[in-house]
Each structure stands twice: as structure tokens, then as C-alpha cells.
């Protein structure tokens, strides 16, 4: 798989926006401190404390409806876009609160990228345009050669370059589902995020594409912190360094039941509910 090696260094796009300090580059640590979430008056998440260490893959596991995705969306301020959604507690990136105005919200979202369940490349853009769309959308300027390098390196990192290098001018949606999802990963990588949130990125994909994306995750995890929601225990085991098990009792908000290195949570869980879940007895 030598062709997947990064051949060109990613141009330091961030440097062109002069205001950004040094700790806005490279994998960043993310800390959730006593996070709670509401939709209207309904509390869906409570007391969530979680450290997502730089350069590590953290998997959020748990049955449906326990608040994993909601939690993930609080991490890059997508939660507040839902009408009536509120939250409490704090979330820090490299120790800086993301909600209280220290960092502009657009910077928060650029530094903490996101890949959702269903691939959603921009329909009105070509493959190449999709990759660099984040630059345009967040107002970063690059030279033409920087841009071309970025397209190639991001697509390579997402393991898509060889498949699409002759189809860069096709519409993004002309690709297959798995390719579209990798295109979305490449798109997120192009703005050089420090954290990448992935909300069940493989659930809509076939096994081959899933494997390809898992490969991508392990390849990029050094340069970007990854938080991934997964329903697939095997996948969580394969890709993650640490795991957090979420659970919500009936009519109660979701909480973290257990949080440990992946190996421990699957082989030696402390809580019986964790053991039941990872062994497939419910959920």
C-alpha cells in the first residue's frame, strides 16, 4: 500500500489565517466536563466527563438513544443548531472553552471536523471542489498549486486518490457510497482539523468500504484526534484506543457507565452492564 503514503506534505493552511496561535495545529486534546444536554425540557445527557487525548481514537459505544450522537454533536457545537437544544457543562479544546466565546464558532468547527452517518458530498460541486470546499466555506485562501497538492494529499489520506484521480471533475455524487464517505473524510481533512468526529461513518456502507475507512482512521489518527460513535463492537475494538460506554435508563438521561482503554472494556469490564452490552446481551 505504498501508494497510500502521503507524498506531499499538507500545506499549512492554518498559517494563512494569521490570528491562529500555535496550538491550533496538530492533534488536540478534547475534554468534556460535566456535560448535560436538553432538547427543550427533556434532558437527554447528564454528567458526562470524558478526556479525549491528542492523537488517540476514542470510541463511544452504547445502545441507540443513549445520547452518544448528541454528545458528539456538542463537541463541535452542532448540537445548538437544533431548535430548542441547550447544554450545560464545559468542553475544552487544548484547555480552552469552546462555548464561551474564547474561540469563534466557525474556528471551533473548523478545528473539530465531523463526518456523519450518511455520506453527504455537496451535490453542486465536483469531486475536487468537494475536497477543497472547506477552504472556501471558512474563507481560507490558498494558491493554485497549494490547492492541487491539498486535493491530492487529502484524497490519498482518505484512500481515495487512486480511484478518483481521473474523475476529479465529476459531480461528487457520481461516486459510490463508500467513495462518497471517503470523499467526506477527505473534505474534512482538507481544513486540517485537530479533532475529527465520526458519527457511525460506516453504518451505511458495505464491508469493503468499511474496511477501507477503518484503514483510513488508523492512518490519520496520528495527526488528528478521533472520536468515533460506533454500533459495531468489532469495529470499536479494531479502531479505538479507548472506549466510553453510554447508557440511558428508561426515561432518564444518558450517562457514561464506564470509560477505559479499549482492551479493558472488552476483556475486563468493571460494570456488569458494560459486560452485558459488549457481549451482545442487549442493545
Amino acid at each position: 500500500m505504498t501508494d497510500l503514503q502521503i507524498t506531499t506534505p499538507i500545506p499549512t493552511v492554518a498559517s494563512s489565517t494569521a490570528v491562529l496561535a500555535d496550538d491550533t495545529r496538530g492533534a488536540a486534546g478534547l475534554t468534556a466536563n460535566n456535560v448535560a444536554c436538553w432538547f427543550g425540557t427533556k434532558k437527554v445527557l447528564e454528567g458526562v466527563c470524558l478526556d479525549m487525548a491528542p492523537g488517540q481514537v476514542t470510541a463511544l459505544i452504547g445502545p441507540s438513544g443513549c445520547g452518544k450522537s448528541t454528545f458528539l454533536r456538542t463537541l463541535n457545537r452542532m448540537h445548538e443548531l437544533v431548535p430548542g437544544a441547550t447544554l450545560g457543562g464545559e468542553i475544552l479544546i487544548n484547555g480552552v472553552d469552546i462555548y464561551r466565546g474564547a474561540i469563534p464558532v466557525t474556528d471551533v468547527r473548523r478545528r473539530i471536523g465531523m463526518v456523519v452517518q450518511k455520506p453527504n458530498p455537496f451535490p453542486a460541486m465536483t469531486v475536487a471542489e468537494n475536497v477543497v470546499s472547506g477552504l472556501k466555506l471558512s474563507g481560507m485562501k490558498v494558491t493554485k498549486s497549494e490547492r492541487d497538492d491539498l486535493i491530492e494529499s487529502c484524497l490519498s489520506k482518505a484512500g481515495l486518490w487512486n480511484e478518483v484521480k481521473n474523475r476529479l471533475g465529476d459531480p461528487g455524487r457520481a461516486l459510490s457510497g463508500g467513495q462518497q464517505q471517503r470523499l467526506c473524510i477527505a473534505r474534512s481533512l482538507a481544513v486540517s482539523p485537530q479533532v475529527l468526529l465520526m458519527d457511525e461513518p460506516c453504518s451505511a456502507l458495505d464491508p469493503t468500504s468499511t474496511r477501507r475507512i477503518e484503514q483510513t482512521i488508523s492512518e490519520i489518527s496520528e495527526s488528528v484526534t478521533i472520536v468515533i460513535v460506533s454500533h459495531n463492537m468489532q469495529q470499536a475494538q479494531r479502531v479505538s484506543d479507548r472506549c466510553a460506554f453510554f447508557l440511558a435508563a428508561e426515561n432518564e438521561p444518558g450517562r457514561i457507565i464506564e470509560e477505559s482503554p479499549t482492551k479493558d472494556i472488552f476483556t475486563n469490564p468493571r460494570d456488569s452492564r458494560t459486560e452485558d452490552y459488549v457481549n451482545g446481551r442487549f442493545g
Binding site: N33, C49, E90, P104
Partner: peptide
């Protein structure tokens, strides 16, 4: 090390709802 244990009660921030600050560009 489990971070849940690391954060002692005293370190917990208040759970009260925050109003997200949105500073829009010009």
C-alpha cells in the same frame, strides 16, 4: 487511568445551561 475517576467532585463545573456565544463575522 480513568478520567472519570480523575475529575474529583470539586473540579466539576456547574451543570447549569450555557448560552453558546456566537460571534458572527462582519
Amino acid at each position: 487511568m480513568t478520567s472519570v475517576a480523575d475529575v474529583s467532585e470539586s473540579n466539576l463545573v456547574d451543570e447549569a445551561r450555557v448560552t453558546p456565544v456566537v460571534r458572527r463575522s462582519k
